[in-house]
Computed example of a mutant assay.
Amino acid sequence: MPAPLTLAHSPCPNDTFVFHAWTQGLLPDAPEVDLTLADIDITNGQARRGELDILKVSYGVLPHILDDYALLPCGGALGHGCGPLVLVAEPGEPAALAGARVAVPSTTSTAYLLFRLWAADAVPGGVGEIVVLPFHEIMPAVRDGLVDAGLVIHEARFTYGRYGLHCTADMGEEWEKRTGLPIPLGAIVARRSLGTPLLRGLADATRASVRAARRDPGASRAYVLHHAQEMEPDVADQHIDLYVNEFTADLGENGLHAVRALLDRSADLGLLPRVPDSVLATTLAL
């Protein structure tokens, strides 16, 4: 019997919800996987080192790993109205962030990439020092004046008001205003060396897991809340509703167009290496 494939994704509710049926052995036809739960910054590093077979990564890391990994057309996080936010303690215009000290959860994340694309236009002269902090420390740091602003993701869009903070810019709104496209956040990738037939099987298993999650949301609830740690159940539900959508089941032409737009715009500014269209051309065939 072959060894299980190695899979890593975050403990965030959208990922545990999507992959519950597969990783918990509820899909008899799906390849067996050995699951690791890790924050996205860790899985980005694992992908860059080629350590695992299947990973959830940031779209911002994609150009660095496409020699070894193929983008799967399902399971990821894209959408409308779900972008990262830039938070401040006092309301103000984005231009006030010139020279500011900004806390971010990672410099390899799509959130940071979207922030850099936005700041290139909205903050004359650019922001100042970038400080990497664990996600849960960013809002308290902004509240307590340790940084001038914070870039936050995921459930923070539902909870920042509890810290008395204000949203000075929504990276998703800015992206959609400029492009009219959904916001590419997280991708599922699998090792190219597994071969096309198995890659198609992994895409099929991911789609089947998404369908199972949607068909019976209650089946994964205890599992999702267990891994969501201290997140309140209603916040976890909002998180899933926002990040699990039609693009999770099928990236489609529109989703892939959004990914290409993100990568091309980032390459234009020198933020990422350029990715030839041919590298992504087989994605929708999986």
Rank of each mutant, 00 (worst) to 15 (best):
Y163T: 06
L27R: 06
P276T: 08
R265P: 04
S220W: 13
G252Y: 12
T6Q: 15
P31H: 08
D34Q: 14
P105F: 02
I240D: 05
L286V: 09
T6A: 14
C82G: 07
P124S: 07
N44F: 00
L72N: 01
F135T: 12
D39R: 06
P124H: 11
P276K: 08
L199H: 10
F247D: 05
A212P: 06
G25N: 09
P28C: 11
A236H: 02
R178H: 09
R116I: 01
P134A: 11
A219W: 02
R214G: 14
R191W: 00
Q238W: 08
G99Y: 09
V279Q: 10
C82F: 06
M231D: 06
A212K: 07
A205K: 11
T206G: 14
H136I: 10
I153V: 15
L62H: 01
K177R: 15
G76S: 05
L71N: 01
A203L: 08
V123A: 07
G45A: 11
V18F: 05
T108D: 00
D237R: 08
A122T: 02
A149E: 09
A281R: 10
H166T: 10
A98M: 08
V127H: 11
P273F: 04
L5M: 12
E90R: 13
T248Q: 11
E230C: 06
R214K: 13
R162P: 01
L280T: 03
L66H: 00
R265H: 13
A103M: 13
G81T: 05
